[in-house]
């Protein structure tokens, strides 16, 4: 059982005691955390600390050696590969640093792909894709190929693609890593605003403090453990669920 936050909301993602080894390398060493609907959680840490591995584990791409990940009511470890794929397709969105758009498709076609994969008719997918591009301010670039877009435009198209299915969780891995500071700012504003508007939980992996500043709270991963947390509790205080925890304090940039 999970514990509601201060507003009485149940956590959307609930990870407990995640341990994952790649051969001799211990990538995750007992991480526990909760992510709430509409919340933006920044995962920070140096290169090789395990933050991308944590994101992949939370998304069900990787299966931990021990520990559990629960998205909503479903425990990922109990699902087979196909069901996990389906869950990601229908309930998760992804934004990456670069190369995330299909190079052979125009911006609009790129955005419609998740809808088509989910079984939406093409006509409807095009309408919804166009509306999503408009929402992100790049509606005029629908016919352009990724190579014809600037980095910031391409990233907003990628966000449109991630949000077009109205996912419950958005996983963003270094979404501003390849952008200049202005593009990074507009991208993060768009991403966080729309996610909050949709009630989508965001797990944001970054090593950039300015990007992390858009999050409601931050955790810092070192050597596969959470070494610090800023914002709200990582897990509820129920001793039975206790994993790696860290102290918290209100982040100066945000109030929830």
């Amino acid at each position: 059982m999970s514990t509601p936050d201060a507003q009485g909301t149940q956590p959307l993602i609930r990870a407990r005691d995640l341990v994952l080894n790649f051969g001799q390398t211990q990538a995750l060493r007992g991480i526990s955390l909760d992510v709430y609907p509409g919340e933006v959680l920044a995962v920070m840490g140096p290169s090789g600390s395990g933050k991308s591995t944590l994101l992949h584990t939370l998304a069900g791409v990787l299966v931990p050696d021990s520990g559990t990940v629960r998205i909503g009511t479903r425990v990922l470890g109990e699902l087979d590969q196909a069901t996990r794929d389906d869950l990601r397709l229908r309930e998760c969105g992804f934004v990456f640093q670069s190369g995330q758009l299909l190079p052979d498709l125009g911006a609009l076609d790129n955005v419609t792909i998740p809808l088509l994969l989910a079984g939406v008719r093409r006509r409807e997918a095009i309408d919804r894709g166009r509306a999503e591009l408009d929402r992100l301010g790049v509606g005029q670039y629908g016919a352009r190929y990724p190579a014809e877009l600037s980095g910031g435009q391409a990233q907003r198209v990628a966000i449109a693609r991630a949000l077009v299915t109205r996912p419950r969780v958005l996983f963003a891995d270094e979404p501003t890593g390849a952008l200049d500071s202005l593009s990074a700012e507009t991208t993060m504003v768009a991403l966080t605003d729309l996610a909050r508007a949709d009630g989508t939980a965001v797990v944001l992996v970054t090593h950039d403090a300015r990007t992390a500043a858009y999050a409601d709270r931050e955790i810092i991963v070192r050597d596969g453990r959470i070494s610090a947390g800023i914002g709200v509790p990582l897990v509820d205080e129920n001793p039975a669920d206790a994993g790696t925890t860290a102290g918290f304090s209100a982040h100066p940039g945000f109030s929830r």
Partner: peptide
């Protein structure tokens, strides 16, 4: 390969 990997990450099945 990279494109296909991203698609898999999004939840696209290997069969697709």
């Amino acid at each position: 390969r990279e494109v296909f990997t991203r698609l898999r990450l999004m939840g696209v099945r290997a069969g697709t």
